[in-house]
Amino acid sequence: MPETKKLMYINRKAPYGTIYAWESLEVVLIGAAFEQDVSVAFMDDGVYQLTKGQDTTGIGMKNFSPTYTALGDYEVNKIYVDKESLEERGLTLDDLQHLVWEDEDEDYAEKDSIRLVSRAELSEVLADQDVLFNF
């Protein structure tokens, strides 16, 4: 049995302006197949990736915001959002999509995936990881 590693994907870029956000999401989904202990963090402009109501019809790009709601299916259910980054940008948790996962052990009860954390809390989570991937 190979050792399970703690992997964290850190997202710090806005969606659409660059390809980082979508590339990161693809890597997270691919990586989820390896049954590691995966968590994802959104900080700085990365918090913009999770806003609800995205409609890309007018810019002719794929709207990948619905894909974040599939993360729960991939058992990626530790999603950290940096509180200070949200506040600086005039956003609150209400402006973000509601991300959930279903707990099979509790009759598929829906649980929140997003954890709103302070910089200090995020710093603790980061320190606890084996590998960090930056996007």
Partner: peptide, 15 residues
Amino acid sequence: EEYQIAPAVRVLTKA
């Protein structure tokens, strides 16, 4: 249609 991705086998099987 809902998620804009084709699911991985593991996810498909479960769903």
